[in-house]
Design a protein around this nucleic acid. Structure first.
Lengths: 170, 170
DNA sequence: TCTTTCCATGTGATTGTATAACATTACAGC
DNA sequence: GCTGTAATGTTATACAATCACATGGAAAGA
């Protein structure tokens, strides 16, 4: 992967704009907690920890990076531990998988019915989540025409984030 | 993945509709040949063979399946051989990568400027390629709003193809 | 024609991603 | 306490992708 921890500009690129970061983590965890309580889901320690890791970084993380951090915190360190937690989070809309990067990111709008679209910077690996109802409905009509039944969609754009565009131009 | 070679219905699902298959292969190869001649690209034996393999199957194939077939035909048998040929085909629009499946498929419309969208059946793994200008333009406007510069897009929907919908209902 | 250069190909080894299969633990309900 | 079920832990392995380096052939220039 192109990920590089020495890349300073990547430390807080959230939707390509600065923000108060500590709030994200606590808010995200609280929202997830509430959602799980509502729907009778079990928000177990591993699942909570994985979501916390994702929220802290606020960028797409590979499964094995997550695994390393789980190990550091004393959780199980074998692949299935991370993958099962990630499956849970993804299938309940608390996180998303970025297919292009084979990586995972916390959902930016956990309370909205989402048809997310992602913009991925190929230089700094930052990822922004946009709502893309238009794209979704365009797909829907195409699907209906052929009789295809959509269950999930992945809309991902790769390119340059605002910050990296400037750098390239200069 | 759910791929299963014993799945009979998967033998000729091209865009979920039957068609004269032999034509696809020869036409596809001819079109590619013409394109490469036009643009001064080298349509080498390996590249040609990989495209032929993709056209023959008319479904998404993993890199290692392609590699097996290359070996059987006397080509190099190490991963880079397949990946390099695939990179060439993908970067010149002769094939596409299905991110969701980590697999590759021959382009269904090699001569059109394409913003392809894919519909992937989770039961029989068949893949249909649709043109999705609408989805693309929706993304474009979202990107412009944030200053993101799109270079490539991947639009993929997972669900049930018409054939498998019937089976499930029954 | 010869040579230089570039690109494609080939091979071995390695790293990263994901799942299968199975054993164990935690906990709710009886 | 027993039982059923869901979650966790562990081993091993399949599948995907890349690195590093050597070889060979076609195209461009001397």
């Amino acid at each position: 992967m192109t990920s590089d921890s020495s890349n300073i500009s990547a430390q807080s690129p959230v939707g390509f704009s600065r923000h108060d970061h500590t709030v994200c983590v606590t808010d995200g965890l609280l929202a997830a907690e509430a959602r799980c309580a509502d729907e009778g889901l079990r928000f177990t320690p591993v699942r909570r920890k994985v979501l916390e890791i994702l929220l802290q970084d606020h960028r797409a993380l590979g499964a094995y990076v997550i695994l390393d951090r789980l190990r550091a915190e004393g959780f199980g360190s074998q692949p299935p531990v991370a993958y099962r937690a990630l499956d849970f989070l993804v299938s309940h809309g608390l996180a998303h998988k970025i297919e292009r990067l084979n990586a995972f990111i916390a959902c930016a709008h956990p309370n909205v019915t989402h048809a997310p679209a992602f913009m991925i910077c190929r230089l700094c690996d930052s990822v922004a989540e946009a709502q893309s109802e238009t794209a979704r409905s365009a797909l829907d009509s195409a699907a209906k025409a052929t009789g295809f039944q959509i269950e999930r969609t992945a809309v991902e754009a790769e390119g340059l984030c605002p910050t990296c565009v400037e750098k390239t131009d200069a």
